[in-house]
Nucleic acid binder design. Structure first.
Length: 199
DNA sequence: TCGCCGATGTTCT
DNA sequence: GAACATCGGCGAT
């Protein structure tokens, strides 16, 4: 996707849909450097992971269930699930409709609403506010109330970048036991706001 | 900086 | 029962 096809601000449903209606690994790379806000808090996406339905690590691998229904919804919507019974994790649905493809948002560089995020997290250090998928949902106030919601409408705001990011680091995905051979974790190489080092 | 471990709830076998 | 796309605290290095 070239710069002229991307919005400078916000994002119409049409443009966001076109952006997400592609392979999740491509979308995961190009989401790096984009600004994401939820309500009055947000930051720059620094780390993502791609999941495909034919991938044993994906929640879509065994087909649609009540719990993963949003993952089979429209592109450019949110899929939110509870992780380890404690945390919420945020995904963006990709591909053509009902494919079960998604990108997990793993880390942000916090830029907006820092005090609000510190309060929600109970942590002062800015580098720790959104440096993990469970941390960033807590900092942004995300719960499954936003599951299935479109990303072009409040409380979401996604500002795509005019150009795809450069200097991307790639590695194996985190915390999975199957599909570990597929290097679909992506990060901004020079960012100080990653969840963990890349291997 | 690293590795281990317990907490916790939903889903699937 | 087991597995799980995690986190924070702890002690060892």
């Amino acid at each position: 996707m070239r710069g002229e096809t991307r919005p400078g601000l916000g994002g119409s449903a049409k443009i966001l849909t076109a952006f997400f209606q592609r392979d999740p690994a491509t979308v995961a790379r190009e989401l790096l450097g984009t600004f994401l806000a939820v309500g009055d808090t947000g930051g720059i996406i620094t780390e993502t992971e791609a999941y495909r339905p034919d991938d044993p690590a994906s929640h879509a691998y065994r087909g649609e269930t009540a719990g993963n229904r949003a993952l089979f919804g429209k592109p450019a919507t949110a899929y939110i699930y509870r992780s380890y019974g404690i945390h919420w994790c945020l995904n963006f649905v990709c591909g053509k409709t009902q494919t079960g493809s998604a990108v997990l948002i793993r880390a942000l560089e916090p830029t907006v609403g820092l005090e609000r995020m510190r309060k929600r997290r109970g942590v002062d250090e800015i580098r720790l506010l959104c440096s993990g998928p469970g941390k960033l949902t807590k900092a942004l106030g995300i719960t499954n109330a936003l599951n299935g919601k479109p990303l072009n409408e409040p409380p979401f705001l996604l500002k795509l970048q005019p150009h795809p990011p450069e200097d991307i680091i790639v590695g194996p995905r985190i915390g999975i036991t199957r599909g570990i051979e597929t290097p679909w974790r992506f990060g901004l190489r020079t960012s100080r706001f990653l969840s963990r080092r890349f291997l």
